[in-house]
């Protein structure tokens, strides 16, 4: 779901950078309000590594293959740290592996980072009660993990459909994009399930990892 270099009009690429710049500033400002802003950096660094490597692990889903994005998981565990972590992960993916691009880094970060923040808000909103039943907790984790991916995929589809260059066969490209939506739906189910597995595992093994400040 990484938009490569040269596929976006300059206005869209610049708008993406503007949104990413604003969201990064907002996230860092929120992080600085923590009592110890560096306390969550080890956690953020390790999840950045997971995010960075996840793009290299391909899961074959016909007609092509997918790779996990993990933005929902990052949002739940990292909170506001998720956005800068995704920005750094995407930068290294673009520079080292050519996944995405430097000109499209702003758009790609906004596309994956803002749903991560929304997953964080959504998860906290669902847990606002005194004690939430374990099943409801799992469902909300699944919805946050899968929903973040679906939101990113929807943004990707909207951006790519609205920026099809006039020289291309728009119908052929549009049909290919619609066909890819099936793959993204399956990916959302996988991401949601994977997020639930990780969160349940961490709750049992190291529950303090999941303690991030409330939004």
């Amino acid at each position: 779901m990484h938009i490569p270099d040269g596929f976006l009009p300059p206005t869209v690429a610049i708008a993406g950078y503007a949104i990413t710049g604003g969201a990064t500033w907002f996230s860092v400002r929120q992080i600085r309000q923590d009592s110890d802003p560096t306390a969550n950096i080890p956690k953020a660094a390790l999840l950045t590594a997971a995010f960075f490597v996840a793009s290299l692990i391909h899961i074959p889903i016909p007609p092509s293959s997918i790779h996990l994005v993990l933005n929902g998981l990052m949002g739940i565990i990292l909170g506001y740290y998720a956005f800068p972590a995704i920005l750094i992960g995407l930068f290294f993916q673009a520079v080292m592996f050519g996944h995405g691009g430097i000109s499209s880094l702003g758009v790609n970060t906004a596309m994956m980072g803002i749903p991560a923040l929304l997953a964080y808000y959504g998860f906290w909103w669902s847990q606002r009660g005194k004690r939430t039943p374990p099943l409801w907790r799992k469902i909300s984790v699944f919805l946050a993990g899968g929903g973040a991916l679906l939101l990113s995929a929807a943004t990707f589809v909207i951006i790519t459909i609205t920026t099809i260059p006039p020289e291309l066969n728009a119908d052929l490209e549009r049909n290919a994009i619609y066909a890819s939506l099936i793959g993204y739906s399956i990916q959302a189910l996988i991401e949601g399930s994977f997020t639930v597995m990780v969160i349940v595992f961490l709750e049992r093994v190291k529950p303090e990892v999941l303690k991030v400040s409330e939004p």
């Binding site: 560096t38 950096i41 080890p42 956690k43 660094a45 390790l46 950045t48 590594a49 960075f52 490597v53 290294f92 080292m96």
Partner: peptide, 12 residues
Amino acid sequence: GVWGCVGTALFF
């Protein structure tokens, strides 16, 4: 790349 992230985590 992963080692860079792990190193950052260890540093903090």
